[in-house]
């Protein structure tokens, strides 16, 4: 079957989709967006987390056909998504311009939570990272000043095997603090 959907703001179409395929498979294998990860494919690890019409979901548990006509945001679109949330007016403000720093790697633009994960050492193997970023970004969207218990509850659907979560806690706290400074 054919599935048409919007991913990271762009209309996308996949053909010859098997009816049992998940949204995760379509993103990874048909649309060239492997950012959402295939760690368990049973909704237990959160590494495939994306936003589906704004809601945080495990893309491995969304049948491809259910995504027809929907809007999906993946980690690949997270920087734009976060920027869109912050932009009150188009263009770069003076303060923002002054804070601008060169970023290695072809000038990649990062969402605050992405930068915080790098800065806080929250990335090791990185396989859980995309899902955690999408979940943590949503948390900060809903709750800009989360307590530690709030962070733990919000991220309890995302398993990480490398970090012991401490640096992930640091990263979310850091992103929240930076976000608060900006306002």
């Amino acid at each position: 079957m054919r599935v048409s959907l919007t991913v990271n703001g762009r209309p996308q179409q996949a053909d010859d989709v098997w009816e049992g395929e998940s949204l995760l498979y379509v993103l990874r294998e048909r649309l060239g967006l492997p950012g959402a990860k295939n760690a368990c494919e049973q909704g237990e690890c959160g590494s495939c987390t994306v936003r589906l019409d704004g809601e945080l979901v495990c893309s491995c548990l969304v049948a491809a056909g259910q995504a027809e006509g929907r809007e999906v945001v993946t980690v690949e679109g997270l920087a734009d998504h976060a920027a869109g949330r912050r932009a009150t007016a188009p263009g770069v403000g003076l303060d923002e311009a002054r804070r601008w720093q060169p970023v290695p790697g072809e000038g990649a633009r990062l969402a605050p939570i992405q930068q915080a994960f790098i800065d806080a050492g929250a990335v090791q193997c990185g396989f859980c990272t995309p899902g955690l970023l999408v979940a943590a970004d949503e948390l900060l969207e809903q709750n800009p000043e989360p307590t530690d218990a709030d962070i733990r509850e919000a991220l309890s659907g995302n398993l990480c095997r490398c970090t012991g979560y401490e640096k992930i806690m640091d990263a979310v706290r850091l992103a929240a603090a930076r976000q608060a400074e900006e306002v």
Binding site: R28, L33, P34, G35, A36, K37, N38, T74, V75, E76, L78, A79, Q101, P102, V103, P104, G105, A108, L110, Q114, Q115, F117, I118, D119, G121, V123, G126, F127, T129, P130, L133
Partner: peptide, 29 residues
């Protein structure tokens, strides 16, 4: 240059940006 630093410093991962943007290519990707 951003991460200039030798041993003993907490320099950042060179693969960090690729890993947070979803571009880092794992074997299953």
């Amino acid at each position: 240059a951003q991460a200039a630093g030798g041993i003993g410093e907490s320099t950042l991962r060179p693969d960090g940006i690729l890993k947070v943007t979803g571009e880092f290519a794992y074997s299953s990707d």
